[in-house]
């Protein structure tokens, strides 16, 4: 059974400059609900900047950005923060967990800023990524792979519309990378919309779509799958 693709992120002529330096030079792109999109490019190509704009952490200098049909390019920082916590789940290469909080508390922290803290639900999210036995460990006592799984549980806890990941396996060994990619495969199967920045060709071939960036411009769009499985 095939369905029409529904755009969840719509970028129109997005430009970003830092002073005289132009990082993004007119990105026009639609990303679709339920798809796993990888963004690849060499260092300095603007892929992290593009991800930051899509995750509402940064604002474009010019252009239009719609997420789930909502125009966000004119929003204030405060509105963006509110929109981000309602819509987006973020995963970073460096994990970025709060060092003095346990795995469980790190997940609960996202609940706290979103709405209501539910300890059982947070514990369940950690069990789902295989960390049911590490709930009360602080990040410093966990491996990189485990910390990244905590970060994934934290990103998913508020059921975001989009999951954005910036090099999520960049700091991990092969075994842990595989573990994390398996989680992403499962998430894709469950119908989550995933946008992942990577410079690994191997990971780039995973997912539904590969966007290649170079010097702030899209150089290719490889659509392996034009429709999402329902």
């Amino acid at each position: 059974m095939k369905t029409t693709r529904e755009a969840i992120v719509e970028l129109k002529d997005i430009r970003k400059s830092y002073g005289e330096v132009q990082i993004l030079k007119g990105i026009t792109l639609d990303l679709y609900k339920g798809e796993w999109t990888n963004i690849m490019g060499p260092s300095g190509s603007g892929k992290t900047t593009l991800l930051n704009i899509m995750s509402c952490l940064d604002k474009a200098t010019e252009g239009s950005l719609k997420i789930n049909g909502v125009e966000i390019s004119g929003m204030s920082k405060q509105q963006l923060a509110h929109f981000r916590r309602e819509t987006v789940g973020l995963i970073f290469q460096q994990y970025h967990l709060v060092p003095y909080l346990t795995a469980l508390e790190n997940v609960m922290l996202a609940q706290h800023y979103h709405s209501v803290v539910d300890e059982e639900e947070a514990a369940e999210a950690l069990k789902k990524v295989g960390l049911g036995h590490r709930l009360n460990n602080i990040p410093g006592r966990m491996s990189g792979g485990e910390q990244q799984r905590v970060a994934i549980a934290r990103a998913l806890i508020n059921k975001p519309e989009i999951l954005l990941a910036d090099e999520p396996t960049g700091n991990l060994d092969q075994a842990n990378s595989e573990l994390i990619l398996d989680i992403f495969r499962n998430l894709r199967q469950e119908g989550h919309s995933i946008i992942m920045v990577t410079h690994s060709t191997e990971i780039g071939t995973l997912g539904d779509r590969l966007i290649q960036l170079q010097d702030g411009k899209i150089t290719s769009q490889d659509n392996r799958q034009t429709t999402a499985a329902s």
Partner: peptide, 13 residues
């Protein structure tokens, strides 16, 4: 970094 993380996951000013 901790403040940035908190903001990234939804903390308001």
């Amino acid at each position: 970094k901790e403040i940035g993380t908190m903001k990234a996951i939804g903390a308001s000013n």
